[in-house]
Design a protein around this nucleic acid. Structure first.
Lengths: 332, 332
DNA sequence: TACCAAAATGACAGCGCTGTCAAATATGTT
DNA sequence: AACATATTTGACAGCGCTGTCATTTTGGTA
């Protein structure tokens, strides 16, 4: 910065000002400074700036994985809003572990991010403490909790699981299978909703869980469906924990010669892009990832800029079941 | 840090040491310090650490978009390696614009990241200068260039486009369509490969380009196929710029009653996960995103840690055409 | 016990910026 | 012209750590 100041024949502080609030510097000096900055290809040291101003102009986001497209869509929305407001977004990955999440929080707090957006509502006690102590707005997303740290925006995964199951029950299905890959908290909540719905409908869910700890994928859905067929345990309907599994199962049904929805109804979750274009088109549960990200970011910015005093603690974004061709009335 | 030092009854510098190189501090003090850190939930200020040590322990990655899964897979590999070596990964998004890329580079240089990994080889002159001046290893990926800034790891997009087209030519197809959504540099290179292959085969490519500037997606592939059918311009074979478009086209063919590959052969690109599970299974061009990310990260770490003196400037990872059921010999 | 080397601890200055306030300059008013 | 006010520029100290080097403590040896 001294070099730039020397070249532009001003004091270093004026350079700093010209870069941060160009309006506060006269046109002439600003031009001289800009020219010098360009000529030297000077880039300010952000660490020094952050230290001196104690503002990081960045926000932290913790997601369980980068692989799942639902988080990619969510991140996209967060980026759109935050970048537009001059915040850098630091994305950290907890790999579905609360301990890694705690490390991630430590990293973000260490960077003095100005807001923290987390997927999920389960944290270690130390993680909660770090978040609270950090004094920055904390937004827990995707799920709902009775005990939010600060702001909570999401949907009830258990209710979604319940309603999805009920949807299949209402179609007249009785043997409704539940297909799941790696079981994270949200998958577990949907499963408990499924169990409850089955119970309320007077149906047994024994032997109807098809689980595999691998990461959910089209390949896995196909493999699980294959196993079900091999063991002769094909249910009347399948509630898949996400659309990847559902599409895999759908594809496998085709190659097995099973009619969907004639022989088996298949319901997915999340309504990923391909769901509407599958053949038959996949019924699914619509979750609002983009809106979730957008709202989380907007809320965070409102709090940071002090605009939001009376802030709601919890927002339920809900979900919606969309019935396409892969689910149909029970044939009996 | 002073608070921790006071609580542990040591000097602040010892706290700093205990946190950074625990071995250099006696067991007793280390325990006292750890206890104090825990008790206060102390998190060091990274900005101060970075400023004082002039090491950021972070690396920067620039991708054109977070939405495309190929970059998600690539990022995953980068994360795996970098996090394992104690680096934080800062991901920035250039939105397919060299100007935004320049801004992204400025951001990363400002953070004094210790390596920069970029998708693509085209940059503004200022961007090149910033990268060179930063003195950190720069790894340009996904494409190959004759003039790398530093290290270049990728594949020839033009050759891949050429060979993919040649693959369809070899099957006896003559009217081979090219389907593309938003045209980035890599798509353009594949297209030029397509054109060249068509020319070499003595085939005209006039009127065989089906383009739409939207972001590539299954929906778009379906829409483009629909238009081709409407205009009665269905070619014998379709080379789609990526598997999303290919799958969309495939699905549309089914609903139009077109046999694949009987009536039309469809070839995708990237071999995304669903390709093998589509019905019919999608032929595609395998690109090695995971290996690319891994290698880029490992190379960067080798250079940062000074282990790599004799480094190769360019690595060609190649590609591979995988023939499944969606492509077949021309029926004539 | 005296001495020496190695290990552990501490003091100091400074990393490159910015917030705060002071000084200088420009602009407007009587 | 003299003054008040607004605008622009500058000086200074300090943000919270760490590198370097000095000092103290420990353990081993003669």
């Amino acid at each position: 910065m001294d070099d730039v100041a020397r070249l532009a024949k001003v004091s270093p502080i004026t350079v700093s000002r010209a870069l941060r609030k160009p309006d506060a510097v006269s046109t002439e000096l600003r031009q001289r400074i800009d020219a010098a900055v360009h000529k030297l290809a000077y880039v300010p040291n952000l660490a020094a700036s952050r230290l001196a101003s104690s503002r990081s102009h960045s926000v932290g986001v913790i997601v369980p994985t980068l692989y799942n497209v639902i988080f990619a869509e969510y991140l996209l929305a967060l980026h759109e809003v935050f970048l537009g407001s001059g915040f850098q977004v630091v994305v950290v990955n907890s790999r579905y572990s609360v301990n890694e999440e705690e490390d991630a929080i430590r990293t973000l707090v260490g960077q003095r991010v100005e807001a923290i957006i987390i997927v999920g509502v389960d944290h270690t006690p130390m993680a909660r403490r770090l978040l609270q102590q950090s004094k920055v707005p904390v937004i827990e997303t995707f799920e709902l909790t009775d005990d939010p740290i600060d702001i909570n925006i999401g949907l009830s995964q258990a209710r979604a699981g319940y309603d999805a199951t009920q949807f299949l029950v209402d179609l007249g299905h009785r043997r409704i299978g539940f297909v799941v890959g790696h079981r994270d908290v949200r998958a577990a909540a949907r499963f408990s909703g499924y169990r409850q719905a089955m119970e309320h409908a007077g149906l047994s869910s024994d032997g109807l869980l098809a689980a595999n700890p691998q990461q959910s994928s089209i390949a896995l859905g196909s493999a699980i469906m294959g196993e079900l067929a091999e063991n002769g345990k094909i249910p009347e309907a399948l509630f898949c924990i996400d659309d990847n599994l559902a599409l895999g199962a759908l594809m496998k049904c085709r190659s097995l010669g099973l009619q969907v929805p004639g022989d088996i109804s298949i319901l997915g979750f999340h309504d990923l892009e391909f769901a509407a274009y599958a053949s038959p088109a996949l019924s699914s549960v619509v979750t609002h990832r983009h809106q979730l990200g957008r709202l989380a970011a907007e809320t965070a910015i409102a709090i940071i800029s002090g605009k939001s005093n009376a802030r709601p603690t919890q927002i339920d974004l809900g979900y919606r079941i969309i019935s396409r061709q892969s689910t149909g009335k029970a044939q009996r």
